[in-house]
Simulated scan of single mutants.
Amino acid sequence: MFSLIPIQPLQSDKKPHYNPPVDVLRMDKIHTVVSGNKWFKLSGYLREAKEKQYSTIATFGGAYSNHIVATACAANLQGLNSMGIIRGERPDVLSHTLQNALNYGMDLYFVSRAQYRDKTAVQQLTDPLGKYYWIPEGGYGQVGAAGIRDMLKGIPLWEYTHLVTAVGTGTTMAGLIQGTLPYQRVIGIPVLNNDQCILSEIEALLTKADFAKKYEILTGYSFGGYAKKTQSLLDFMNQTYQTVKLPLDFVYTAKAFYGLSDYLQSAELARDSKILFLHTGGLQGNLSLPEGALCY
Protein backbone atom coordinates (compact mmCIF):
# COMPACT_ATOMS: atom_id res chain seq x y z
CA MET A 1 0.00 0.00 0.00
CA PHE A 2 2.83 2.38 0.81
CA SER A 3 6.23 2.86 -0.83
CA LEU A 4 9.61 2.92 0.88
CA ILE A 5 10.22 5.96 3.05
CA PRO A 6 12.60 8.44 1.39
CA ILE A 7 15.41 10.05 3.39
CA GLN A 8 16.33 13.67 2.67
CA PRO A 9 19.80 14.94 3.65
CA LEU A 10 19.50 18.60 4.62
CA GLN A 11 21.99 20.40 2.42
CA SER A 12 22.79 23.81 1.06
CA ASP A 13 25.28 24.30 -1.78
CA LYS A 14 25.46 20.50 -1.97
CA LYS A 15 27.02 20.29 1.49
CA PRO A 16 25.47 19.38 4.87
CA HIS A 17 23.71 22.48 6.15
CA TYR A 18 23.89 21.45 9.80
CA ASN A 19 26.76 20.32 11.97
CA PRO A 20 26.45 17.48 12.76
CA PRO A 21 24.60 16.41 9.60
CA VAL A 22 20.82 16.05 9.74
CA ASP A 23 18.77 13.70 7.55
CA VAL A 24 14.98 13.72 7.49
CA LEU A 25 12.88 10.57 7.30
CA ARG A 26 10.20 11.90 4.95
CA MET A 27 7.32 9.85 6.33
CA ASP A 28 5.02 12.59 5.01
CA LYS A 29 5.64 11.28 1.48
CA ILE A 30 4.31 7.74 1.90
CA HIS A 31 0.67 8.73 1.35
CA THR A 32 -1.20 11.95 0.68
CA VAL A 33 -3.49 11.55 3.73
CA VAL A 34 -2.39 8.64 5.93
CA SER A 35 1.05 10.20 6.04
CA GLY A 36 3.89 10.38 8.48
CA ASN A 37 3.71 8.12 11.51
CA LYS A 38 -0.04 7.63 11.21
CA TRP A 39 -0.15 4.48 9.07
CA PHE A 40 2.45 2.74 11.22
CA LYS A 41 0.51 3.50 14.41
CA LEU A 42 -2.84 2.54 12.87
CA SER A 43 -1.95 -0.59 10.90
CA GLY A 44 -1.96 -3.01 13.84
CA TYR A 45 -5.27 -1.69 15.14
CA LEU A 46 -6.91 -1.93 11.71
CA ARG A 47 -5.63 -5.45 11.22
CA GLU A 48 -7.03 -6.52 14.58
CA ALA A 49 -10.38 -4.86 13.85
CA LYS A 50 -10.76 -6.79 10.61
CA GLU A 51 -9.64 -10.05 12.22
CA LYS A 52 -12.33 -9.60 14.87
CA GLN A 53 -14.86 -8.68 12.16
CA TYR A 54 -15.70 -5.18 13.34
CA SER A 55 -17.32 -2.98 10.72
CA THR A 56 -16.79 0.40 12.44
CA ILE A 57 -13.66 2.08 13.80
CA ALA A 58 -14.03 4.76 16.48
CA THR A 59 -11.39 7.05 17.94
CA PHE A 60 -10.73 10.42 19.57
CA GLY A 61 -9.11 13.71 18.55
CA GLY A 62 -9.26 17.47 18.28
CA ALA A 63 -10.25 19.80 15.47
CA TYR A 64 -6.72 19.73 14.00
CA SER A 65 -5.97 16.09 14.73
CA ASN A 66 -3.93 14.39 12.01
CA HIS A 67 -4.93 11.13 13.68
CA ILE A 68 -8.63 11.80 13.03
CA VAL A 69 -8.31 12.40 9.29
CA ALA A 70 -5.77 9.58 8.90
CA THR A 71 -8.11 7.15 10.67
CA ALA A 72 -11.02 8.27 8.51
CA CYS A 73 -9.03 7.74 5.31
CA ALA A 74 -7.42 4.45 6.41
CA ALA A 75 -10.79 3.03 7.48
CA ASN A 76 -12.28 4.06 4.15
CA LEU A 77 -9.45 2.34 2.27
CA GLN A 78 -10.03 -0.82 4.33
CA GLY A 79 -13.79 -0.81 3.67
CA LEU A 80 -14.63 0.10 7.28
CA ASN A 81 -16.95 2.74 8.71
CA SER A 82 -15.51 5.30 11.13
CA MET A 83 -16.57 7.65 13.90
CA GLY A 84 -14.53 10.41 15.52
CA ILE A 85 -15.16 11.79 18.99
CA ILE A 86 -14.10 15.42 18.66
CA ARG A 87 -12.97 17.52 21.61
CA GLY A 88 -14.99 20.73 22.00
CA GLU A 89 -18.29 22.09 20.75
CA ARG A 90 -19.03 21.89 17.02
CA PRO A 91 -17.80 25.14 15.40
CA ASP A 92 -19.76 27.06 12.80
CA VAL A 93 -17.00 26.34 10.28
CA LEU A 94 -15.16 23.03 10.43
CA SER A 95 -11.37 22.94 10.17
CA HIS A 96 -9.90 21.55 6.96
CA THR A 97 -8.92 18.47 8.97
CA LEU A 98 -12.48 17.73 10.10
CA GLN A 99 -13.94 18.53 6.70
CA ASN A 100 -11.55 16.06 5.12
CA ALA A 101 -12.53 13.45 7.71
CA LEU A 102 -16.18 13.96 6.77
CA ASN A 103 -15.27 13.57 3.11
CA TYR A 104 -13.82 10.15 3.92
CA GLY A 105 -17.10 9.11 5.50
CA MET A 106 -16.31 9.62 9.18
CA ASP A 107 -19.21 10.47 11.49
CA LEU A 108 -18.18 13.28 13.83
CA TYR A 109 -19.48 13.37 17.40
CA PHE A 110 -18.63 16.55 19.32
CA VAL A 111 -18.34 16.54 23.11
CA SER A 112 -17.41 19.21 25.63
CA ARG A 113 -13.83 19.32 26.90
CA ALA A 114 -15.06 18.13 30.30
CA GLN A 115 -16.82 15.13 28.73
CA TYR A 116 -13.79 14.40 26.57
CA ARG A 117 -11.61 13.82 29.63
CA ASP A 118 -13.75 10.80 30.60
CA LYS A 119 -13.29 8.71 27.48
CA THR A 120 -14.76 5.58 29.05
CA ALA A 121 -18.04 7.39 29.67
CA VAL A 122 -18.04 8.75 26.12
CA GLN A 123 -17.52 5.23 24.74
CA GLN A 124 -20.44 3.93 26.79
CA LEU A 125 -22.63 6.81 25.61
CA THR A 126 -21.84 6.47 21.91
CA ASP A 127 -21.39 2.69 21.71
CA PRO A 128 -23.58 1.13 24.44
CA LEU A 129 -23.65 -2.28 22.74
CA GLY A 130 -19.89 -2.45 22.14
CA LYS A 131 -20.17 -2.75 18.37
CA TYR A 132 -17.27 -0.42 17.53
CA TYR A 133 -13.55 -1.11 17.52
CA TRP A 134 -11.97 1.69 19.57
CA ILE A 135 -8.53 3.04 18.79
CA PRO A 136 -7.01 5.20 21.57
CA GLU A 137 -6.38 8.88 20.85
CA GLY A 138 -3.34 9.29 18.64
CA GLY A 139 -2.99 5.52 18.31
CA TYR A 140 -1.54 5.42 21.81
CA GLY A 141 -0.67 1.98 23.14
CA GLN A 142 1.53 -1.05 22.64
CA VAL A 143 -0.04 -1.76 19.24
CA GLY A 144 0.76 1.73 17.94
CA ALA A 145 4.29 1.69 19.36
CA ALA A 146 4.95 -1.71 17.78
CA GLY A 147 4.08 -0.27 14.38
CA ILE A 148 6.70 2.45 14.79
CA ARG A 149 9.28 -0.06 16.05
CA ASP A 150 8.70 -2.29 13.03
CA MET A 151 8.94 0.70 10.68
CA LEU A 152 12.58 1.16 11.75
CA LYS A 153 13.45 -2.20 10.20
CA GLY A 154 13.01 -0.68 6.76
CA ILE A 155 15.57 2.12 7.09
CA PRO A 156 19.40 2.23 7.56
CA LEU A 157 19.00 2.84 11.27
CA TRP A 158 22.61 2.01 12.12
CA GLU A 159 23.86 5.17 10.35
CA TYR A 160 22.48 7.50 13.02
CA THR A 161 23.47 8.41 16.55
CA HIS A 162 20.35 10.46 17.36
CA LEU A 163 16.69 10.12 16.39
CA VAL A 164 14.42 13.13 16.91
CA THR A 165 10.63 13.28 16.82
CA ALA A 166 7.72 15.48 17.77
CA VAL A 167 5.75 14.14 20.73
CA GLY A 168 1.97 14.17 21.06
CA THR A 169 0.73 11.08 22.88
CA GLY A 170 4.27 9.68 23.09
CA THR A 171 3.51 6.55 21.06
CA THR A 172 6.01 7.30 18.31
CA MET A 173 8.78 8.07 20.76
CA ALA A 174 8.07 4.86 22.69
CA GLY A 175 8.31 2.86 19.45
CA LEU A 176 11.60 4.53 18.59
CA ILE A 177 13.06 3.71 21.99
CA GLN A 178 11.94 0.10 21.61
CA GLY A 179 13.61 -0.20 18.20
CA THR A 180 16.83 1.74 18.60
CA LEU A 181 20.33 0.36 19.02
CA PRO A 182 22.29 0.66 22.31
CA TYR A 183 24.51 3.54 21.15
CA GLN A 184 21.64 5.68 19.88
CA ARG A 185 19.76 8.46 21.68
CA VAL A 186 16.09 9.26 21.10
CA ILE A 187 15.00 12.87 21.59
CA GLY A 188 11.33 13.79 21.88
CA ILE A 189 9.98 17.33 21.65
CA PRO A 190 6.44 17.77 23.06
CA VAL A 191 4.03 19.96 21.10
CA LEU A 192 1.47 20.12 23.92
CA ASN A 193 1.67 21.69 27.36
CA ASN A 194 2.02 18.25 28.95
CA ASP A 195 5.63 18.35 30.09
CA GLN A 196 4.76 17.03 33.55
CA CYS A 197 3.13 13.79 32.43
CA ILE A 198 4.36 12.89 28.96
CA LEU A 199 7.47 11.02 30.09
CA SER A 200 5.40 8.72 32.29
CA GLU A 201 3.02 8.10 29.36
CA ILE A 202 5.97 7.11 27.19
CA GLU A 203 7.59 4.93 29.83
CA ALA A 204 4.29 3.10 30.40
CA LEU A 205 4.84 1.55 26.95
CA LEU A 206 8.44 0.46 27.59
CA THR A 207 9.90 -2.78 28.92
CA LYS A 208 12.51 -2.97 31.67
CA ALA A 209 15.19 -3.44 29.03
CA ASP A 210 14.07 -0.25 27.26
CA PHE A 211 14.71 1.80 30.40
CA ALA A 212 18.43 1.19 29.95
CA LYS A 213 18.39 2.94 26.57
CA LYS A 214 19.23 6.60 25.98
CA TYR A 215 16.30 8.97 25.62
CA GLU A 216 15.27 12.45 26.72
CA ILE A 217 12.53 15.05 26.40
CA LEU A 218 13.25 18.62 25.30
CA THR A 219 10.63 21.00 26.65
CA GLY A 220 9.73 24.60 25.91
CA TYR A 221 8.69 24.27 22.27
CA SER A 222 4.89 24.04 22.42
CA PHE A 223 4.51 27.68 21.33
CA GLY A 224 1.51 28.09 23.60
CA GLY A 225 0.04 24.60 23.33
CA TYR A 226 -1.43 22.15 20.87
CA ALA A 227 -2.08 23.70 17.43
CA LYS A 228 -0.99 27.09 18.77
CA LYS A 229 1.48 29.16 16.79
CA THR A 230 3.36 32.45 16.77
CA GLN A 231 4.70 34.58 13.95
CA SER A 232 8.22 33.54 14.91
CA LEU A 233 7.27 29.89 14.32
CA LEU A 234 5.81 30.71 10.90
CA ASP A 235 8.93 32.72 10.05
CA PHE A 236 11.06 29.74 11.06
CA MET A 237 9.01 27.45 8.80
CA ASN A 238 9.53 29.75 5.82
CA GLN A 239 13.23 30.15 6.54
CA THR A 240 13.70 26.39 6.82
CA TYR A 241 11.98 25.76 3.52
CA GLN A 242 13.94 28.48 1.74
CA THR A 243 17.23 27.15 3.11
CA VAL A 244 16.94 23.35 2.93
CA LYS A 245 13.61 22.79 1.08
CA LEU A 246 11.96 21.09 4.05
CA PRO A 247 8.21 21.77 4.42
CA LEU A 248 6.97 21.61 8.01
CA ASP A 249 3.53 21.77 9.63
CA PHE A 250 2.84 24.23 12.42
CA VAL A 251 1.17 21.68 14.74
CA TYR A 252 3.96 19.10 15.07
CA THR A 253 7.06 19.09 12.90
CA ALA A 254 7.84 22.81 12.92
CA LYS A 255 7.94 22.86 16.71
CA ALA A 256 10.08 19.74 16.84
CA PHE A 257 12.50 21.01 14.21
CA TYR A 258 12.73 24.35 16.01
CA GLY A 259 13.69 22.44 19.14
CA LEU A 260 16.24 20.38 17.23
CA SER A 261 17.79 23.55 15.78
CA ASP A 262 18.27 24.93 19.29
CA TYR A 263 19.65 21.60 20.46
CA LEU A 264 22.28 21.54 17.71
CA GLN A 265 23.50 24.97 18.79
CA SER A 266 23.68 24.24 22.53
CA ALA A 267 24.55 20.54 22.86
CA GLU A 268 28.11 19.28 22.82
CA LEU A 269 27.85 16.43 20.34
CA ALA A 270 30.58 14.04 19.24
CA ARG A 271 32.15 14.80 15.85
CA ASP A 272 30.84 11.55 14.37
CA SER A 273 27.23 12.29 15.36
CA LYS A 274 24.52 12.07 12.73
CA ILE A 275 20.88 13.04 13.29
CA LEU A 276 17.72 11.50 11.85
CA PHE A 277 14.66 13.74 12.19
CA LEU A 278 11.27 12.09 11.69
CA HIS A 279 8.89 14.07 9.53
CA THR A 280 5.65 12.75 11.02
CA GLY A 281 3.41 14.29 8.36
CA GLY A 282 0.46 16.59 8.97
CA LEU A 283 1.15 19.12 6.23
CA GLN A 284 -2.58 19.25 5.53
CA GLY A 285 -2.93 21.16 8.80
CA ASN A 286 -1.27 24.16 7.15
CA LEU A 287 -4.42 24.63 5.04
CA SER A 288 -5.98 26.34 8.06
CA LEU A 289 -3.39 29.15 7.89
CA PRO A 290 -4.19 32.43 6.12
CA GLU A 291 -3.32 32.45 2.45
CA GLY A 292 0.27 33.62 1.93
CA ALA A 293 1.39 32.78 5.48
CA LEU A 294 3.81 30.21 4.08
CA CYS A 295 5.99 30.29 0.99
CA TYR A 296 5.20 26.67 0.10
Rank of each mutant, 00 (worst) to 15 (best):
P21S: 14
V24W: 06
V24G: 05
V24Q: 04
R26N: 00
D28H: 04
D28Y: 04
K29E: 12
K29Y: 10
I30V: 15
H31C: 00
H31K: 03
V34C: 11
V34M: 09
V34P: 06
G36M: 05
G36R: 01
N37E: 03
F40P: 05
L42S: 09
G44H: 11
Y45H: 14
Y45D: 12
Y45G: 07
L46E: 12
E48N: 15
E48M: 15
A49V: 13
Q53L: 14
S55W: 05
T56V: 01
T56M: 03
A58S: 13
T59F: 09
A63D: 04
A63E: 10
Y64C: 07
Y64N: 02
N66L: 08
N66R: 04
I68W: 02
I68V: 14
V69W: 07
V69K: 05
V69H: 08
T71K: 03
A72Q: 03
A74R: 09
A75I: 04
A75D: 06
L77F: 06
L77Y: 03
S82N: 02
M83G: 05
G84R: 03
I85A: 07
I85M: 04
I86E: 12
G88S: 11
E89S: 13
E89C: 02
E89R: 13
R90V: 10
D92I: 12
L98W: 05
A101V: 00
A101Q: 01
Y104L: 05
G105Q: 05
D107P: 01
L108Q: 08
Y109N: 15
F110K: 09
S112H: 04
R113L: 01
A114L: 12
A114K: 12
Q115E: 15
Q115A: 14
Y116C: 08
Y116G: 04
D118R: 11
D118Q: 11
K119I: 01
K119M: 09
K119A: 00
T120Y: 10
T120E: 14
T120G: 10
A121L: 11
Q123N: 01
Q123L: 07
Q124H: 13
L125Q: 15
L125D: 14
T126H: 14
T126Y: 15
D127P: 05
D127I: 03
P128D: 05
L129Y: 08
G130Q: 03
G130H: 13
G130E: 11
G130K: 12
G130D: 06
K131A: 11
Y133S: 13
W134K: 13
P136I: 02
E137K: 10
E137H: 12
E137I: 10
G139A: 06
Y140N: 11
G141E: 13
Q142V: 12
Q142Y: 08
Q142C: 04
V143D: 02
V143P: 00
G144C: 06
A145R: 05
A145K: 08
A145W: 07
A146R: 14
G147K: 14
R149F: 00
R149I: 00
R149K: 11
